[in-house]
């Protein structure tokens, strides 16, 4: 079946100052685990879940993002999908927890370039300086009228995710920003 995220990124967003690329199909799971079970869960599952809100860990296989006191998103390539699901199913017997497939709920973008902080700051009120938003930090926040998730992956590189129907609005704002560059 044809996978289609139905998003076009304009040429204005393909410059050195600001480049935006669409991430391809990924598997995403939302995990909810009681903080008191976290250590045991990590041990049993082998998943590298960070303990603190805002932290992320990237391994060769997966990205683990801690978004709330009992909430994580695990993002992985589609080829790992079945393995990951198997782990979750196995954990069900041992832990009271929740896993929900949200792979297609989100659309992910990689934003990079020297203007990347300014670009995100047109709609996101967070202080994105490296001191307060270091590499590896992740959070949900807002981008004007759209809820988003922001993950810093480099000094001038961010991964940004939103629910799929919000993506054209977000791209539209970046597009307008690019015209002012």
């Amino acid at each position: 079946m044809l996978f289609s995220q139905d998003i076009n990124i304009s040429e204005a967003l393909q410059t050195n100052a600001l480049s935006m690329t669409l991430m391809d199909e990924k598997t995403r799971y939302s995990l909810r685990i009681k903080p008191k079970d976290l250590a045991a869960f990590k041990k049993a599952s082998g998943l590298k879940l960070p303990a603190k809100i805002g932290q992320s860990i990237r391994t060769s296989a997966h990205s683990y993002l801690c978004l709330g006191p009992d909430e994580w998103i695990v993002i992985t390539a589609n080829e790992n999908r079945n393995n990951l699901r198997e782990i979750f199913v196995n954990m069900t017997a041992k832990f009271t927890y929740s896993y929900v497939d949200v792979s297609h709920r989100n659309i992910g973008f990689v934003l990079s370039g020297e203007q990347v902080e300014n670009a995100i700051n047109i709609g996101c009120p967070l202080d994105l300086s490296l001191d307060t938003f270091p590499i590896g930090k992740v959070t949900r926040t807002v981008f004007e009228n759209a809820p988003i998730m922001v993950l810093r992956t480099g000094t001038t590189e961010f991964q940004l995710e939103c629910w799929r129907s919000f993506a054209p609005y977000i791209c539209g704002l970046f597009d307008r920003f690019a015209m002012d560059l």
Partner: peptide, 16 residues
């Protein structure tokens, strides 16, 4: 209003 006029005034959600 800033950038948020015209098509960018409000999110218009569309289905797949």
């Amino acid at each position: 209003a800033g950038y948020r006029t015209g098509d960018l005034f409000e999110v218009e959600r569309k289905t797949p």
